[in-house]
């Protein structure tokens, strides 16, 4: 799939997600919804939910927990706007079912920091203008925080020259590792600057 197709798909999906939830359910045909109970710890708070089994973790947060920071861009794992940190790892929350996360610890952008208590990555994004429209930003920031954790943990990437040597948060490493987060405003270079600054602070 080319970037152009990806953007077209993302636009269509964004338009579709604006349709009321009931209409979306109607689209699935006349089959009867099945519900299941799940308990999640979201941003440190235990939440008990009874959900249609089809509910993605993203929709559970947005539609059932009123945590609308995580965004639905493509809804197919291609854009990264839905990125959350689940059990310590960044994932596409649109491509996992809420019912598969019984007992999981979930951090969304709302849990990472608040307007009066910003996470260092949020502050760095503001300082370096790491966004324009802001739609991809919550996913970029969740991903960015996790990427620095992955580098610290010694997890290699496609551009790591020596698989058996320690790695650093170089510009090439950051760019490769952030490739699952698309920014159509093109704030990439500023995102890299923000992440580099936070990586420097951590080192």
């Amino acid at each position: 799939m080319s970037r152009r197709e990806l953007v077209a798909g993302a636009t269509a999906a964004a338009a579709f997600s604006a349709v009321p939830l009931q209409a979306q359910a109607g689209n699935a045909g006349t089959d009867k919804p099945v519900t299941a109970k799940v308990s999640l710890t979201v941003n440190g708070q235990r939440r008990e939910l009874e959900l249609d089994t089809r509910t993605s973790l993203l929709d559970a947060a947005r539609e059932h927990l009123q945590l609308t920071g995580s965004k639905k861009g493509c809804d197919h794992g291609q854009c990264g706007a839905c990125t959350m940190i689940v059990d310590g790892r960044r994932i596409n929350s649109c491509l996992t079912l809420a019912v598969m996360h019984q007992g999981s610890e979930i951090t969304t952008i709302e849990g990472l920091g608040q307007p009066d208590n910003l996470h260092p990555m949020q502050a760095a994004f503001i300082k370096h203008d790491g966004y324009q429209c802001g739609y991809c930003t919550p996913g970029q920031i969740c991903s960015g925080v996790a990427v620095l954790g992955e580098i610290k943990a010694g997890i290699p990437s496609h551009v790591t020259a020596d698989l058996n040597a320690p790695m650093e948060a170089t510009v090439d490493e950051i760019r490769e590792r952030m490739s699952g987060n698309i920014c159509r405003c093109g704030a990439y270079s500023n995102i890299v600057e923000a992440m580099t600054e936070v990586a420097g602070r951590q080192a």
Partner: peptide, 16 residues
């Protein structure tokens, strides 16, 4: 094998 895995998908997808 490491190289092939790291050449595929995105960090988020490889985590899952």
């Amino acid at each position: 094998l490491s190289r092939a895995l790291l050449a595929g998908a995105s960090g988020q997808l490889r985590n899952k």
